[in-house]
């Protein structure tokens, strides 16, 4: 198992919490809300890239939207290795609720 930094852990949990609707802005809002202080976009990109490289999250591309000037949204989701071993654990549910 690869070690995660504190930031990576927070981002990983945020992606897990967002359940398939994780992209830059939503992740930022999520962690900002959960941790109580404002995260910048730049601050989440590095952990996101590292998590992708470590294989815990994978990205996919949404259909291009007009709102984004025809550019597609990059969505992140957990991979099999990134998923919690036993989602039924109470501590798991508890933390999911908190985040």
């Amino acid at each position: 198992m690869k070690l995660l930094s504190r930031n990576e852990e927070i981002i990983l949990l945020a992606v897990w919490r967002l359940e398939g609707d994780a992209f830059g802005i939503s992740i930022r809002d999520q962690v900002s809300e959960a941790t109580g202080y404002q995260w910048s976009l730049g601050a989440i990109y590095v952990p996101l890239d590292k998590l992708t490289r470590k294989g815990y999250i994978a990205k996919s591309y949404s259909r291009p939207t007009a709102r984004r000037g025809g550019r597609s949204k990059v969505l992140y989701d957990l991979t099999a290795t990134g998923r919690p071993r036993d989602p039924g654990l109470p501590v798991e549910r508890h933390s999911r609720a908190r985040i």
């Binding site: 992209f23 830059g24 802005i25 976009l41 990109y45 890239d49 990205k59 591309y61 709102r67 984004r68 000037g69 550019r71 597609s72 949204k73 990059v74």
Partner: peptide, 17 residues
């Protein structure tokens, strides 16, 4: 400098919008 540079730039713009 990123393969998703376009998407990320858009995220900045979304904040603006």
């Amino acid at each position: 400098r990123h393969e998703d540079a376009g998407g990320r730039e858009a995220e900045f713009e979304e904040i603006f919008a």
